[in-house]
Simulated scan of single mutants.
Amino acid sequence: MERDKTKCLSLMPEHLLIGCMDDGSFPVKEARVKSGIEVASLRNSINPEKETSCGVVSEPFHTHVTCSTKRVLDVSVSYMHSYKQVYLNEGHVIKALIKTGMTSGLLTQEQNKALMDIAVVSRDMLMDLSAYFTPDLPFRNIRKVVKKDTENLIRFIEGEFKGNWTDSIKISLSKTLIPIFIATDSSGSIVGFAAYNPNGHFGPMGVALNRRSEGIGQSLLHSCLGEMKVKGYREVIIDSAGPIEFYERTCNAEVVPVD
């Protein structure tokens, strides 16, 4: 749509930047406001005559993209893979645009920094449970952890996530009432987990890389939220949420604004 508006033959990095700025999540909008990024000015700065080469093909776009745009997309995908994610999001693209120098002349150093500090990083989120109800879960094999699951859960975390959450999960497993849910496959093997703690914080949560996009994370999240609601929690803090879009879409959580 942005390419059509500017009458360009190929999709340029500027179009990606405008797309992220104009239809972004709360952190992007917050960074825009705090740093004074104006979408209209970005759009007006595009000159179709800057296209110096014919476009190339790059999925999933049906239109051609410039070689510079292809480079940005490739770097974006590398960021996605480094975070062990399966969906490309605006954070990956914005970071790639800045790191490849494509925002030079479009944004100031202060604006680049605001995007990197506010829009690209993980952020804490807050969810109000007062009107919450648990929806139908797309993935059914969800249950609470029991003591006999300890060894398998630790092995799963160490194998899938390099043990990043092992210590915090061991603390949760030591409790009498373990605040952890797991997702299992047809053979009973663990394919995902989610935890919360008594002070009202949700997390961590992780799903096996080869089982993403099946609704497992969504189901684990709602299982925890449902139990927290029953236990009387009024709000939930989601620590260092990422990707933010998942929590905005799945449970209407809101990003905690930067002071």
Rank of each mutant, 00 (worst) to 15 (best):
R3A: 13
T6M: 12
L11I: 15
P13C: 13
L16K: 15
L17N: 08
I18V: 15
S25N: 14
E30R: 14
V33E: 15
E38W: 00
A40C: 01
I46R: 08
P48V: 05
K50D: 13
T52H: 03
T52E: 02
S53V: 04
S53M: 10
P60S: 07
F61K: 05
H64A: 15
H64I: 02
H64V: 12
S68D: 14
S68C: 11
T69P: 09
K70M: 14
D74Q: 13
H81S: 07
H81F: 12
K84P: 00
V86R: 09
E90R: 15
G91H: 05
A96K: 04
T103E: 08
T103V: 13
G105S: 09
L106W: 10
T108P: 07
Q111C: 14
L115T: 05
L129R: 09
A131M: 04
A131L: 12
D136Y: 03
L137H: 03
L137R: 11
L137A: 11
P138C: 13
F139G: 04
N141W: 04
K144I: 02
V146I: 15
K147H: 05
N152Y: 03
L153P: 03
T166Y: 00
I169G: 00
L173M: 12
F181Q: 08
S186E: 12
S186N: 08
S187K: 09
G188P: 07
A195C: 14
Y196S: 15
G200T: 11
H201R: 10
G203L: 00
P204F: 00
M205D: 00
M205Y: 02
V207K: 06
R211L: 05
R211S: 09
I216F: 06
I216L: 08
G217F: 01
C224Y: 07
G226M: 11
V230N: 04
V230E: 14
G232R: 04
Y233F: 15
E235V: 04
V236R: 02
P243H: 01
P243K: 03
I244Y: 05
E245G: 11
E248Y: 05
R249H: 04
A253P: 01
V255I: 12
V256W: 01
V258P: 02
